[in-house]
Nucleic acid binder design. Structure first.
Length: 399
RNA sequence: GGUGAGAUAGUCAAGUGGCCAACGACGGCGGACUGUAAAUCCGCUCCCUACGGGUUCAGAGGUUCGACUCCUCUUCUCACCA
């Protein structure tokens, strides 16, 4: 039982620091029913969760299964600084109202995966604000610039001549201080968070709270392009709130290589089951598309329902395999004869008439399934199905 | 605080008075081939009912028939020195 729990917890992880302690915590749970805490921090600027976030959430859910109380930390204070991890982006400061709304939307989405009874939602402004200037000063004396610059992000930016704000040095310190305040036993995060996660250990030692958290890092999930990490700003994400049809379609659009990555990090299938699928594809007994379809079904069903996932698959076959029109398309209407380029813009199929002309010239535009090549075409009264490329459809009624 | 360098389209990056709506690369979009996969090949990539017109090269002025290119100021960034 303990063995199995450990295996499940370690599955897919990229790196674990002080895994002996995790083992001890688990043992104490199994032997004496003693609970422990696992911390994970989230940024309230991005309440729209995508599958990248769920890698962590699913890991947290497994911890909950084995005696952990989750400290679900919403970094409302630290959001004012902006995590320097990865690219630097100017953050807009959020009002208390916005943060409240975002936190609410977090709850709705997160509890599709986590058990609310074993989760504490906390905000770090609660303890960071009372720190005051002197508390902050004490915090900064625990670390030095040279070590700060060892951090890969900072090092690269420093060497390449990109600016680093002093406040960004504060960010890891505050994240670490969260672990001091919460007395976390374990913290989990992405591998890109390594520096910040280790800061928790450093500060727990400096503040002598009598323990140092273990750290479990999960790999970063690649986005649909298979190269960059999944993120909303890169628009290569699958959102947990995406419609079933979108979700299914997006999973199916990933490359075969990336599919295995998604299986590893997102599927609840066991490692040996996944291995069997790989062998099947390798020796030709399984079609890779079928395997991908199963994954898409599993993921879609997780956030919607099994029925919704199945109808998404049927819809997909209908549109893409049989080249039919989707069941539901956005409908628009307008008056009088309309110039085709204008119509495409009005139906949000194209961002400008210039783009519309180009698309027509390139044979990307279809009206009622018929390819057109006349840029000057006027649409007379009637109903039309407009299509640009393979995926964009709209229904237009000309009065 | 001083000195020097720099800011070009989604990103990187050419252009140092007219040939510039601005080379190239990446990304993105479209087409062919497919399994809406990958790879490959081809085309497109500021806006406008368009063989023409309009707005762009950090911002504001100026010099010039003409400026992304020269000058002044402003904002921001980096390097070295303090």
């Amino acid at each position: 039982m303990l063995e199995e729990a450990l295996r499940e917890i370690k599955r897919g992880s990229a790196e674990i620091i002080d895994s002996d302690r995790i083992e001890k915590l688990l043992k104490a749970y199994f032997d004496e029913g003693k609970r422990y805490s696992v911390k994970a921090g989230f940024d309230p600027t991005a309440p729209d969760l995508h599958l990248g976030h769920t890698v962590l959430l699913q890991k947290l859910a497994i911890f909950q299964k084995y005696g952990a109380t989750i400290q679900f930390l919403i970094g409302d204070f630290t959001a004012q600084i902006g995590d320097p991890t990865g690219k630097s982006a100017t953050r807009k400061t959020l009002s208390a109202v916005q943060i409240g709304e975002n936190a609410k939307s977090y709850r709705e989405q997160v509890f599709k995966i986590l058990d609310p009874a074993k989760t504490e939602v906390v905000f770090n402004s609660e303890w960071i604000n009372p720190l005051g200037a002197s508390g902050m000063l004490t915090l900064t004396t625990t670390f030095n610039v040279a070590r700060m610059l060892e951090r890969d992000d900072f090092d690269k930016r420093y060497k390449s001549g990109t600016s680093i704000s002093i406040s960004e040095f504060i960010y890891p310190l505050l994240q670490g201080y969260d672990s001091v305040h919460l007395k976390s036993d374990i913290e989990i995060g992405g591998t890109d968070q390594k520096f910040n996660l280790l800061m928790g250990r450093h500060l727990q030692r400096a503040y002598e709270i009598g323990k140092e958290q273990s750290v479990l890092m999960m790999p970063i999930l690649e986005g649909l392009d298979g190269v960059q990490k999944m993120s909303k700003s890169l628009n290569n994400y699958i959102g947990v709130a995406d419609e079933p049809n979108d979700m299914f379609g997006k999973v199916l659009s990933v490359s075969d290589e990336l599919m295995w990555r998604y299986y590893e990090l997102l599927s609840t299938k066991t490692l040996s089951e996944i291995e069997a699928l790989k062998n099947g594809v390798a020796d030709g007994t399984l079609h890779p598309k079928k395997v991908k379809e199963d994954l898409a079904l599993e993921i879609t069903a997780r956030f919607h329902s099994f029925e919704a996932a199945q109808s998404a698959r049927d819809e997909f076959d209908k549109v893409h395999s049989n080249n039919q029109i989707p069941t539901e398309i956005d409908a628009y209407s307008c008056n009088g004869d309309v110039w085709i380029a204008k119509a495409l813009v009005d139906c949000n199929l194209t961002p400008s008439t210039s783009q519309a002309r180009r698309d027509i010239k390139q044979g990307a535009v279809k009206i009622n399934q018929e390819k057109i090549d006349d840029e000057q075409l006027q649409l007379a009264t009637g109903e039309y199905i407009l299509q640009v490329g393979k995926r964009k459809f709209a229904k237009l009624k000309v009065n």
